[in-house]
């Protein structure tokens, strides 16, 4: 693989950047939340829940900020002229960039996961291995999807300022995704959406889990055994607890038992995450292979 030196260099770029290690620290600080709700929801597996909590919000912000400049930066400085002059196809350059950044971020996020796990074991004792492995693999999928998105952004947008603006826009849209989808659903169908008592609508619940972090939550909630929802595990647990009202969209709360459509099965979130990996990569390749790179 002639692009492996490029991938190694990209990996080193991440490993030597302060941003990546700040992300590691923030994931640990944000993720470690020893709450009674969390303990009541999943017991000693709360250690695994820390991973979901830390990764869910911070990984999208961190990864996009650490990848959106991967190609734009080289265009802006002119160093891309050396890169294109190397014996690499443009597709190889994209591969080297994506794989290298993925590996570097994988290592730093891996450190965060290890730290959270260590703290969790120290505080709460042993946890179940199978959901832990599942959540780690889901985190790897989410990371790959976000790197793929960041590289697409870097390929498609010509200026650093525009790309940074899109990153902020993406973060805001996904942060308020439930509200955005609810409003659009109401406009399209005329049915008001009360998040405390959501309508049993398959399309509504499906769209709610279409973001990378939404799909990640659905998958990890399933692995943790708390319920079928794109919200975080503590919210899902609270929503399903008798006598509690909370603005979370949980399939089991909206649909009668056994009436939820097949496409809301949590395992399909793997497909959604795979789509977030594949589609941006294909688009990046198409854009980067067509036209000028300067």
């Amino acid at each position: 693989m002639q692009w492996s030196p490029l991938a190694r260099r990209e990996c080193r770029t991440i490993l030597t950047s302060k941003g990546a290690w700040i992300l590691t620290a923030l994931i640990v600080l944000w993720g470690f939340r020893p709450t009674y709700t969390g303990w009541n929801a999943i017991g000693q597996n709360i250690t695994i829940g820390y991973i979901q909590t830390g990764v869910n919000v911070l990984l999208p912000i961190g990864v996009l900020l650490l990848t959106y400049q991967s190609l734009i930066g080289e265009r802006t400085t002119g160093s891309i002229k050396f890169l294109i002059a190397l014996p690499l196809k443009r597709t190889h350059i994209l591969l080297g960039k994506s794989v290298g950044r993925f590996a570097g971020l994988g290592a730093t996020v891996g450190v965060a996961v290890l730290l959270l796990t260590g703290i969790g074991v120290f505080e709460h004792g042993a946890f179940a291995i199978r959901p832990f492995v599942g959540v780690v693999l889901a985190t790897v999928l989410l990371l790959a999807a976000l790197v793929s998105l960041g590289v697409l952004l870097s390929t498609a947008v010509k200026s650093t300022v525009s790309a940074a603006g899109i990153v902020v826009g993406y973060i805001l849209v996904t942060l308020f995704w439930n509200t955005v989808v609810s409003k659009v659903y109401t406009v399209v169908t005329g049915v008001p959406v009360n998040p405390y008592d959501a309508p049993a609508s398959g399309p509504l619940f499906f769209v709610l889990r279409l973001t990378p972090d939404g799909a990640y939550n659905v998958l990890t909630n399933w692995l943790l055994g708390v319920g079928n929802s794109a919200d975080q595990f503590r919210a899902v647990y609270t929503k399903l607890k008798p006598g509690h009202g909370i603005n979370a969209f949980v399939v089991e709360a909206a649909f009668e038992s056994g009436t939820a459509p097949w496409y809301l099965h949590p395992v399909l979130s793997i497909g959604i995450l795979a789509g977030w990996i594949a589609v941006p990569l294909v688009l990046s390749r198409r854009i980067f292979n067509t036209g000028d790179v300067l």
Partner: peptide
């Protein structure tokens, strides 16, 4: 055939940037 060509080519571009650090 960028690989075949660039394996045999050395380039000093104009208005280039180097990698800081």
């Amino acid at each position: 055939d960028p690989i075949g060509i660039h394996e045999r080519t050395g380039v000093l571009p104009d208005r280039f940037g180097l990698y800081e650090g």
